[in-house]
Design a protein around this nucleic acid. Sequence first.
DNA 1: CAAATTAACCCACATTTACCCACAATTCCC
DNA 2: GGGAATTGTGGGTAAATGTGGGTTAATTTG
Lengths: 151, 151
Amino acid sequence: MFRGVNPINLDAKGRMAIPARYRDTITEYCCGQLVATIDTEERCLLLYPLAEWEEIQAKIQALSSFNPAVRRIQRLLIGHATDLDMDGNGRLLLPAPLREYAELSKKIVLLGQGNKFEIWSEDRWLATREEYLAEADGGAELPEELKNLSL
Amino acid sequence: MFRGVNPINLDAKGRMAIPARYRDTITEYCCGQLVATIDTEERCLLLYPLAEWEEIQAKIQALSSFNPAVRRIQRLLIGHATDLDMDGNGRLLLPAPLREYAELSKKIVLLGQGNKFEIWSEDRWLATREEYLAEADGGAELPEELKNLSL
DNA sequence: CAAATTAACCCACATTTACCCACAATTCCC
DNA sequence: GGGAATTGTGGGTAAATGTGGGTTAATTTG
């Protein structure tokens, strides 16, 4: 599915052009209908094809709303989820509240992550990446499957 | 599969010519479709035939994204993985973000590594090789399998 | 209800990329 | 050593992409 880094500029209206290489896939898979929400761990956005999102939302909703942690996730994820669709030029208008959450100004980065994308401000992405690179792959906290993965 | 060291020059557009001896193999095995990503330990790139990469991506994606170590690997590896295909002259255009990561300017080295290639800047490769050679083969930290390996 | 602001849609231009062709250099073979 | 074929290199051009803005429709606010 989706992968790769894409440096993108937001225009004055807060629109981002989806790189052309993803457009056909997005059009076929979900008729250009996407859902954006926030990442609860990092100050970045998540961008799902509509069908993918609906599966995830169904799973989240199925959880017990008496558990505070569940309630938190429900409010954050479902509460911020916004339907978006590509305009005739293959662009998305990112709503102001989401842009503010992720501190997106002009230079942003679109990161392919398999079934979804992540949207970062360029500065924040580069800083986070440096942190990740500085962390050694200390095998201690890695799951068993990952320790045995041969690249 | 792939082996050997190949000094290559990038041209002004950031393209690298795949040495002719690999071209037929690459064409047959994956129709010239390759995937480049970063190495998380060293400032170099990894270059996989498409099919090889997809197996790896599937394994990484299957892991829980609530584990921070997993999330880190997903962002670094899948996030940087970029589809490339050979042009009519057997060349690959390496995207700017990947070239910057590995500090590739003109002189680079393509290293055959079995199921994949590694791409290094020449300077960095020579320096790293010197470090490797300087390290004594103190057998202490070698895994059992390696101690019993007969060359 | 009117006015103003925001969002959606469309068109046009500038830039970049991908593709192609031609030449230079090297290697291989005779 | 000379010639031919293959490989490496460079760049030009057409097409596709990114970018900006203008106009109309819709929604909100006073």
